[in-house]
Simulated assay, not measured.
Amino acid sequence: MKAVIPAAGFGTRFLPATKAQPKEMLPVFDKPTIQYVIEEAVASGIDDILIVTGKNKRSIEDHFDKSFELEHTLEVAGKDKYLKQIRDITDLADICYIRQKEQKGLGDAIYCARKHVGDEPFAVMLGDTITKGDTPCTKQLIDIYNKYDASAISLEAVPMEKVERYGIIKGEEIEKDVYKINQLVEKPPMSEAPSNLAIMGRYVLTPDIFDKINETEPGVGGEIQLTDALSKLDAIYGNTFEGKTYDIGNRLEWLKTSIEFAMDDEESREDLLEYLRTIV
């Protein structure tokens, strides 16, 4: 299976930090956000990845490319630990790139991948969402696809006052944590939301989604919404992820995620706790 990572957005909610730097390259503790996403793909058994980029996204390509000068400098200096980290990044997966030439929405970004994907199921992993769990989120969706032979998306229960930030589903639970989806609505007002189950940035899709995207008119925000195209599929399942999802979509959530990941690091934890006590 291949993975598609949309990473073409402007990142306006992080301006001015994202004026010349992709939001997907903002560091969460000690790695750029998108590296966590690719590591999840690899942990799910995927090593063929297409990143859909846009203007000012070249640093993503540079990060996963080989850096001869840096490797030589580290090797000469005997910094083997850092040299291994740099080489491991380059060797993570086979990564290709294509540009979304116009900002026409997530659905259009996925449509840019149709030639690379071909007539096969594929994963979609948003480049500004990180997941953490014993079984990778994308692997859980692959298992559901294999069981039901239909598209699958990751879900999370969110507070009702936040439903207007997400695509929301209506469905029936057919087994523990698995839903047969009957309706999808993009960013509904709280009073019109069919549930509080939100789509959380991970998908395994059948290739007929490309035809559905092609048939989809611009929706919320004047963009081609992936949620609207998903609504046209004959069958789709949802899975409430057994783990935690981090939506790096705004400054506060990004900062909280970075602190939480730093607390997981044995070398940083105690010093960070001591510092936080001094400012609280």
Rank of each mutant, 00 (worst) to 15 (best):
F14V: 02
G238T: 14
R277Q: 14
V178C: 04
D119Q: 06
D65Y: 06
P136E: 01
I98Y: 09
A123G: 12
L74V: 07
K232D: 13
I89S: 09
A20Q: 12
A109Y: 04
P188A: 09
K187D: 14
A123D: 13
R114S: 09
L92I: 13
L106C: 08
I86N: 14
A7Q: 02
Y97L: 11
H116F: 14
N146T: 11
M263E: 03
L226P: 14
E223M: 07
V220F: 09
F64I: 11
V76F: 03
T227C: 02
T73H: 06
T245L: 05
L184W: 08
M190N: 06
K244L: 09
N250D: 07
K176Q: 14
I51A: 01
D228Q: 08
G243R: 03
A77Y: 04
I153G: 02
T227K: 02
Y36E: 00
T18F: 08
D47R: 00
K19V: 07
V204Q: 01
I169L: 00
Q21S: 10
T278F: 03
D94V: 11
M125R: 05
K23Q: 13
W254Y: 01
I86T: 15
Q183P: 00
D149K: 13
S268Y: 06
A113C: 02
Y179M: 03
G219L: 08
A93M: 13
N196T: 05
R114Q: 11
H63R: 05
I236V: 14
E274T: 08
N56E: 10
L155Q: 02
A113T: 13
K244E: 15
S154H: 01
V76H: 00
K19I: 08
E75N: 07
A43T: 10
Q100W: 04
R165Y: 13
Y82M: 13
S59K: 14
T245Y: 00
A3G: 02
A235E: 15
K232C: 05
E156W: 07
Q35K: 03
I89N: 01
I213G: 10
D128H: 05
K31M: 00
A109R: 00
K2D: 12
P16S: 07
I236A: 10
E71V: 11
S154K: 03
D271S: 06
V204M: 06
L252C: 04
G219R: 02
I38F: 05
L252F: 03
G11H: 04
L255C: 11
D119S: 14
K162S: 13
A193F: 03
V124Y: 01
A77M: 13
R58I: 09
V117S: 03
M1G: 12
G171L: 11
Y275D: 10
E175Q: 15
D149V: 10
A262R: 02
V4C: 07
Q35A: 04
E120W: 00
Q140W: 13
I209T: 09
E217N: 13
K84R: 13
G201L: 10
K84H: 14
L226E: 15
V28M: 03
N250Y: 05
E69G: 05
D30K: 04
N56S: 12
A235Q: 13
